[in-house]
Amino acid sequence: MKNKTILKWAGSKVRIIEQLRPHLPKAKRLVEPFAGSCAVMMNTDYEQYLIADANPDLINLYNEIISMPVYLFINEADELFGYSSDNDGIYYYFRTIFNEQENKLSSVEKASLFLYLNRHCYNGLCRYNSKGGFNVPFGRYKKPYFPENEIVAFADKARNADITCLEWQDTLSLVDFGDGVYCDPPYMGSGFTQYHTAGFSDADHEALAIALKDINDIQGNPITVSNSPEATELYADLGFTIHEIDAPRTISATGNRKPAKEIIAVLEGGK
């Protein structure tokens, strides 16, 4: 059974978790430098997790959920969902508060607004403008889902997790002997290359792949990476074993929702 996540998320691994799970590292602790919606954590049973992402809004949400009794966060966040869900004026009002009143909001208010925006915005996208403002348009859903059960499940699961806001390079510096690493960066050639407020270029993909290869060579950590077929040559040339899968398409600029090819690149553990 697949466990859903708190957030709607473009590229969520819930959709391919049954295909991905057999290729994930065998380890006591899983390190995720691109945590996103935490779909992998919510659908695996590692003893420990290091959950990291460069998006401070995302990590603030997760940390607020686990920093207080979960029912208090649910009460705070659920109140926002009581407003008319088909009123774009309310959505844009809350988005303005989120962007322009950032320094005046408490951490839990910021987290609650982020959850509201995610569940009401278009397609669960998480995009920011050059000034760092959340800029995804209104999604026009009849009744956005409030993920109470998912929040409770996350709070329970995260008892075994360290959750931190870091760039991927800094997260990889924390990989210890015996850890497994799973990376889900913005896909190469997908058109959705933004990584928080910065881009994620082909050069970034190459730097990530080389860093992962070095960790495997030096420490022997098992590595798994999800990406598009455009990244096949990059990872194959570094010695990764490439598995190709069909993944349901959640977003398409052309309206084509047929399954898309993805790759799972694997380096087995050594040493």
Rank of each mutant, 00 (worst) to 15 (best):
F146R: 03
A247L: 06
S84K: 09
W9G: 05
E47Y: 13
Y128S: 03
P185N: 11
L115S: 10
K143D: 08
T5R: 07
L80P: 09
E76L: 06
T171L: 01
A153E: 10
Q48F: 15
A158W: 08
M68C: 10
Q219V: 12
S84A: 14
N43W: 03
N103F: 04
K261H: 07
K8E: 00
A236E: 15
Q19F: 01
P22K: 06
A207R: 15
L113W: 09
R15C: 01
F81V: 10
R119Y: 02
V225F: 09
E18G: 01
C126A: 15
H196I: 00
N135F: 13
Y62G: 05
L117P: 03
L174S: 00
A27L: 07
A265T: 04
D45M: 06
P56A: 11
E206H: 11
L234V: 05
A39P: 06
Y141G: 02
I51F: 09
C121S: 14
Q48E: 15
S12M: 12
A39M: 11
R29I: 08
Q219P: 01
A158I: 06
Y182I: 03
T254K: 11
L125M: 15
V136F: 14
E47K: 14
L208A: 13
D202N: 13
I218A: 12
Y93I: 03
V175R: 08
V152M: 10
V14C: 15
G199N: 14
A27P: 08
A198T: 06
E233L: 12
A253K: 12
N99C: 12
T254N: 13
L61H: 07
A111H: 07
E100P: 01
E167S: 01
D179P: 07
I16P: 02
A209D: 10
R95T: 00
T241G: 04
D57E: 14
N55Q: 09
N60P: 02
L234G: 02
E18W: 01
C165S: 09
F200H: 08
Q194W: 00
G239N: 11
S190P: 04
F94Y: 15
D214I: 11
A10I: 14
G11I: 05
A54T: 01
P147A: 08
Y122P: 01
L115I: 03
D246E: 15
F73T: 09
L212V: 11
I6P: 08
A158D: 05
L166Y: 02
A155M: 00
L7P: 11
N55Y: 00
M41K: 06
I263M: 08
R249T: 15
G133I: 02
K110N: 13
F134I: 04
E109A: 13
F94L: 15
A10W: 00
D179T: 10
I218Q: 11
T164K: 02
Y91L: 04
A35D: 04
A27V: 11
N3W: 01
T96P: 01
